[in-house]
Design a protein around this nucleic acid. Structure first.
Lengths: 191, 191
DNA sequence: CGGCAATCTTGTCGTTGACAAGATGCTGCC
DNA sequence: GGCAGCATCTTGTCAACGACAAGATTGCCG
């Protein structure tokens, strides 16, 4: 049996993300992930300590990926609040495994320092941008409203609760239409 | 050991709802629930077949409770769309165990006939009312928007993701304020 | 070249979900 | 009244899992 897999950590993460995307977080088993990677049943524990540790790593990575996407939006010309929402939904669709874990703190070590750091970074980015777009008096409520809408839509879509409703459409574009119905316009980041 | 618990089915359901509300659906164990009810480890299986069966029963009950609350809203005077949303959020807060299961079809038997029936009933009630309130041209998008917002807010609040933001406030009332920021007014059911 | 830390294996324990087989108590029917 | 049959519950068992401990292997750094 060859020692040193190469990048076992990455392999286990990827396998876990596949399983979660397909069958939800409750379907993962460390022993199964080990089998998929071709290593012994206790090997993953070395990289993640325990099951919650694995999910913590996924949550951290998810926050980083989301932060990247938000930063991209901010760097673009003519960004509007709705674009942030669309990006949030698109992130959920493109990274269903990450998304299914990130907002379920019962699944992971919610106080792990790396996670706290990553979450705060993403949160500040989001809050800052919304504030920039809305002016700060109604910012708190507007931010909550936008987050709720995007999060709710993504959650319902991913869990398959909208299957009958949306059919073949791209969920992120459907969300754009939906948000148009919903929100008063909140200005643009021009440059 | 006394046979015939009295109402084991109810006792197990209630214990399960407590555990789920406290620690999420992944924290339940049939054997633990059996211990709490003071019966042998295989007794719950007789009533629910398996773990997914127990969660299916919870999802059914949740749909029925939500339908009741929606029906109440419709029977009231001067119901507005926002009131439906507030009720949805309030339902989630008052029945966190049910809510945490209902929209996670990976956890239960999504094609169980009783569940399909209950879900369709709730869905029709909701769709019908929204259509009544909005007129039917934009009904589909508006319904999705409203559902997304209420569902997202409830989900985030229940998972503890809003703890810092909302503090001591009643989440349902906060949602009312938030929805006011967000939605164009959609008329009232007068009588 | 030697030691040392990172990585992985092997072995084990208690817990769980699922299933099978049997015990118990209720209910309706003659 | 008694018995047949069914719902309810128990006991026993199995494979899988998460966690932990102890040991093996490897590569790297001095």
């Amino acid at each position: 049996m060859a020692y040193h897999h190469g990048d076992l950590r990455r392999a286990v993460l990827d396998a876990a993300l596949d399983v979660i995307a397909a069958d939800g977080p409750s379907a993962i088993s460390l022993r199964d992930l080990a089998r998929r990677a071709g290593v012994s049943h206790a090997a993953p524990a070395h990289h993640f300590k325990d099951k919650a540790g694995l999910l913590t790593a996924i949550a951290v990575e998810g926050n980083e990926l989301l932060a990247e996407s938000l930063a991209e939006a901010i760097a673009e010309d003519r960004t509007r609040l709705i674009d942030l929402g669309v990006r949030y939904v698109r992130f959920a669709m493109e990274h269903p495994g990450h998304f299914a874990v990130m907002y379920r703190p019962d699944l992971y070590h919610r106080h792990a320092p790396e996670l706290v750091t990553a979450r705060e970074h993403t949160g500040k980015l989001l809050r800052g941008t919304v504030q920039l777009l809305t002016g700060d008096q109604s910012a708190r409520l507007t931010q909550l409203a936008a987050w709720s809408a995007a999060h709710g839509f993504a959650t319902l879509a991913l869990a398959g609760n909208l299957d009958k409703t949306i059919g073949e459409q791209d969920p992120a574009e459907l969300f754009r239409a939906l948000a148009g119905v919903m929100f008063v316009d909140h200005g643009t980041i021009e440059r």
